[in-house]
Design a binder for these strands. Structure first.
Length: 920
RNA sequence: GGGCGGUUAGCUCAGUUGGUACGAGCGCUCGCUUCACACGCGAGAGGUCACUGGUUCAAGUCCAGUACCGCCCACCA
């Protein structure tokens, strides 16, 4: 069982996770339960890559909690589960981190060189991997670490290269010179997705580009002054031939302008089309061209065309055969093409250009302007569009099958609305820039032959020795691949692909559930679907990577903002575990998660989890204490006469909860499943059943203990996926007296319950509801009349509708309500009417002789008020039922229910009126 | 410019096929060291389900629109 011989200490009065968790986890590992157990149906979850920087984020803790719950549930269902803990290389994050270290030492990666850089990264990463494994242990994640898949391991390297080569040979990967997003701080290209647009307050500079006349000479003196303010647009202040005004937010790119474009229909500038203007920083003549893409309304209506540094301009340039000038160096300074601005940082250059133009009198005006500026998601630097030669995936052909798989329902998203998001993106997908100029990552498996004029380019899975064409020396491409290229292979590469015969692949692909946050649908989920469908096409078991994409929301800080180190509002999962225990954290995360919605993690919720764990612990302690070592805990079968009404009630409620939990889990409503189970356990089992059981046990009846042990056992099974440690610990203690009928040595591999409908008992449920009503009514009156808590008072229960139950449970009612003597009587006339307080219930009433304990007038007023309310209800229901439309159109069941309600309300009203009449 | 969420008790949030708001946790009020649990027990207070209109016998739940808050996508100089 567990390593300490099963000789456990007595249960302390408070559950202490620190004493339990490590021992329990070791027990699971030693039992080998994290490995596939050989069930009939495979159930696979691939763990998403945690953050390789070694910090455990709450988002990852949530992912782990949800996935582990699913894995544990399926394992208990008897499925053959495998949970592969994948660790991606997280290229950008790790690169940035090590670069920051270098930065602090005052050097750059280019100073120390590729090899030394990678050495430093490996040191760091190896340490991180160990920490990640440890973190998952702390989270109670039942992942099989022996299968850990790290992207840079040789097997995964091969998967990446094989994919690259296949795509390359199919013409879906190509190298091309295009406009890309350049991160001058990270000094690498980025994909569109890695650029975040943020509003930045800046200026709109209106710049005059002097026009040349037909002969190419500068036109005579530009007109001074303006037509004045608002009238400009309708009536240009710039007479034909003098100059053209453009509006720009990036004056530093003016030296790269190769044209000015206007709309062919624009009256203001039409006469200039075909003429030349001077690029104002260097007086270089550039043409004025006409293009339909120009918006007449925007800016001045004329656009400076900078094909080297703007996507739109690049396209205009292509249409008009314009030259492309690149004035930016990789580090964000201007290069030699920028003339006298060469060497300046781009923002410095902006100021200088403006100064110079102002000096020349070419700035017409400057307006404040707020616009969206692209920033690198990782480095935060303002991204510069530049034209550069990069590797691309032509994703169009991959998107088709990826769209179809979701359209035809082979892959389903939970919640469904994200399918739209996914499809919209996929349908408008653009080529994917996959080359990065960072060093830590999968190197692009392409080699170039530099020998003579050979010029051979080859893509290969294995490192080639020499050029196959000429035998010359080869040089590998310097770039690495976008992290998401390798992450996109996750579902099959972690299971052994490209080895088509890999056992795991055959057994566990396709996987069942992909669980992750909605923020990476495009980055990751979409890429996994595309690349898996491509690599696994024709695979025997099916080509899709997973059947269900369950998307959780973001975990936000207690203040509702995104957790961020710069806000200082990060909640560390390990710290929470330290303080409250893993189960408490998992309870908090699970109970806060509804598909697709964000949640806040607060101490309150974690405390609720801890409290619940403690409640479980103490309920178990009670059962154990009462039972003693030799109790017979065999549950009597259905129909056994030893089972009393309250036993049948709690067993019925238990089975309804079992059914509900199962149903909820199947539709991924984890939070609701947990809540329902908790509510049953706490509000019904602990608060009522155990209290009732105590009385009987004192009288020597052992049956309630068997019932309680049974309920406990089944509830622990239901809760195990969510709170693995405390449930395992209690279950094992319980199993010492009550071994698992199927022989499971530990809860982790015990059977998940299926609802036993034979235990359903509506009559018992109705009866106990009545008993609870009676008890509550007496307690209520006691509290309202300020009877001291310890004092016993006499009470009459008039049980119209539940006479038998009330009779059977009279002693219990008395005990729970502190009522002695307690009389159960058949009719109101059998109870006293003088000096009494009466509470009228749907099932009868309670009458408390409390002469002198209350104010008669107040009592009369209270009854009067209740009568008013009851009359209102009777009137409303009566009106509803009198409505012919309702009677004919509503379903019969609904009408019947309303009729019943009316009957109940009427009888309650009568009771109240009688009471009022009697107390006079 | 498109698209998607949110708006329910003081706070944070559930509420999936329309049928009494079963609401939950925390907080609050009152009372309890009742022999499993004060990480607890008992009793309470607290809501025009953002707004307007519509469909329906019936709407927090469906439809249309409005207002705030938030997110995503998009080459507006």
């Amino acid at each position: 069982m567990t390593s300490d011989n099963g000789a456990r200490e007595e249960m302390r009065s408070a559950y202490d996770p620190s004493e339990v968790e490590e021992r329990i986890y070791r027990g699971w590992e030693e039992g080998g339960f994290f490995k596939p157990q050989g069930g009939d149906r495979p159930f696979t979850v691939i763990m998403p890559p945690p953050n390789l920087t070694g910090e455990l984020h709450m988002g990852h803790a949530l992912t782990a909690a949800v996935e582990d719950a699913l894995i544990r549930w399926h394992r208990m269902l008897g499925d053959d589960t495998v949970w592969v803990p994948g660790v991606d290389h997280a290229a950008i994050a790790v690169n940035a981190l090590v670069e920051r270290q270098l930065d602090e030492e005052g050097v750059s990666r280019h100073d120390i060189g590729r090899e030394a850089f990678l050495e430093r990264v490996w040191d760091f990463v190896n340490a991180s991997r160990a920490r990640i494994a440890e973190q998952h242990r702390r989270l109670g994640a039942s992942a099989d670490w022996e299968r850990e898949a790290f992207t840079l391991d040789e097997a995964r390297q091969r998967a990446v290269r094989q994919t690259f080569v296949n795509l390359y040979e199919d013409g879906l990967i190509f190298r091309g010179e295009r406009m890309i997003n350049w991160d001058p701080v990270g000094q690498t290209a980025l994909s569109d997705l890695e650029v975040e647009y943020r509003d930045v307050e800046s200026s709109f500079w209106y710049v005059r580009y002097p026009a040349l006349d037909e002969d190419g000479d500068p036109a005579p003196s530009p007109l001074e002054g303006e037509g004045g303010g608002e009238g400009e647009r309708a009536q240009p202040a710039t007479p034909a031939g003098d100059y053209i005004v453009i509006a720009t937010t990036r004056p530093e790119t003016i030296p790269a302008d190769t044209a000015v474009a206007v709309h062919p229909e624009d009256e203001r500038w039409r006469h200039l089309i075909g003429r030349m203007v001077l690029e104002p920083t260097s007086d270089r003549p550039i043409p004025v061209i006409a293009d339909e893409a120009i918006e007449i309304e925007a800016g001045s209506g004329a656009l400076k065309v900078t094909p080297g540094h703007d996507q739109v301009d690049f396209e205009i340039g292509e249409r008009h055969g314009l030259e492309t000038i690149n004035i930016l160096a990789p580090d964000g300074t201007l290069n030699e093409h920028a003339g006298r601005y060469a060497g300046l940082d781009r923002f410095e250059a902006r100021d200088r250009v403006v100064e110079d133009l102002e000096a020349k009198g070419l700035i017409e005006k400057i307006e404040p302007y707020t616009h969206a500026v692209g920033h690198s998601q990782r480095s935060g630097a303002v991204v510069e569009p530049i034209v550069s030669e990069q590797w691309w995936v032509n994703v169009g052909p991959l998107a088709g099958p990826a769209i179809a798989a979701v359209r035809d329902g082979r892959i389903a998203f939970v919640p469904k609305r994200f399918e739209r998001t996914y499809l919209h993106w996929m349908e408008n997908i653009r080529d994917w820039c996959i080359s990065r100029q960072i060093w830590w990552g999968h190197r692009i498996p392409v080699w170039y032959c530099d020998a003579g004029d050979c010029g051979e380019t080859i893509a290969a899975v294995e490192d080639p020795d020499a050029c196959p064409a000429c035998g010359g020396a080869l040089r590998q491409d310097e770039d690495t691949l976008d992290t998401w290229f390798s992450s996109g292979l996750w579902p099959h590469s972690t299971l052994g692909w490209p080895d088509e015969d890999a056992e795991d692949l055959a057994r566990f692909y396709p996987t069942q559930v992909m669980e992750t946050g909605y923020d990476i649908i495009f980055f990751w989920v979409a890429r996994m679907i595309m690349l898996s469908l491509y690599n696994m096409r024709g695979f025997e078991g099916g080509d899709i990577p997973f059947e269900t994409v369950y998307l959780h929301g973001l975990v936000r800080a207690p203040d509702g903002r995104k957790m961020s180190k710069s806000f200082g509002n990060v909640v560390d999962p390990l710290g929470v575990i330290e303080q409250y225990g893993t189960d408490a954290l998992r309870y908090a995360l699970i109970s806060g998660t509804s598909p697709g919605n964000d949640q806040r993690i607060t101490d309150d919720r974690v405390e609720a989890g801890r409290n619940f764990a403690n409640k479980l612990w103490n309920a178990a302690r009670l059962v154990r204490t009462l039972a003693g070592p030799d109790a017979d805990l065999e549950l009597p079968p259905v129909g056994d006469e030893r089972l009393r009404r309250e036993d049948r009630w709690v067993l019925s409620r238990l089975e309804r909860t079992v059914g509900l939990a199962d149903e909820l889990l199947r539709s991924y409503q984890l939070a609701e499943a947990l809540r329902q189970t908790r509510d049953f356990f706490w509000d019904e089992f602990a608060d009522w059943y155990l209290e009732l059981a105590k009385l009987r046990v004192r009288e020597g009846d052992g049956v309630p203990l068997a019932v309680a042990a049974h309920v406990l056992d089944r509830v622990l099974r239901l809760l195990h996926p969510f709170m693995p440690f405390v449930t395992e610990e209690i279950w094992q203690r319980l199993a010492e007296a009550r071994p698992d009928p199927e022989g499971a040595p530990q809860l982790i591999v015990a059977r998940y319950p299926a609802a036993d409908t034979a235990r359903h008992d509506e009559a018992a449920e109705r009866d106990l509801a009545a008993v609870q009503d009676f008890v509550r009514a007496i307690r209520n009156e006691r509290a309202a009349k300020r009877v001291e808590a310890g004092r016993w008072i006499e009470a009459y229960v008039v049980a119209d509708g539940a006479a038998e139950a009330a009779g059977d449970l009279a002693a219990a009612i008395g005990q729970l309500a502190r009522a002695r003597p307690l009389h159960v009587v058949a009719g109101a006339s059998d109870a006293p009417s003088e000096g009494v307080v009466t509470a009228v219930l749907p099932v009868g009433r309670v009458v408390l002789p409390m002469a002198g304990l209350f104010d008669l007038e107040a009592e009369r007023a209270r009854l009067g008020k209740q009568i008013g309310e009851a009359r209102d209800e009777v009137r409303k229901l009566g009106a509803k039922l009198a409505n012919e439309q309702f009677r004919t159109r509503a379903p019969a069941a609904v009408v019947a229910r309303e009729e019943e309600r009316l009957a109940t309300a009427s009888s309650r009203l009568r009771g109240l009126e009688e009471s009022l009449a009697e107390i006079i």
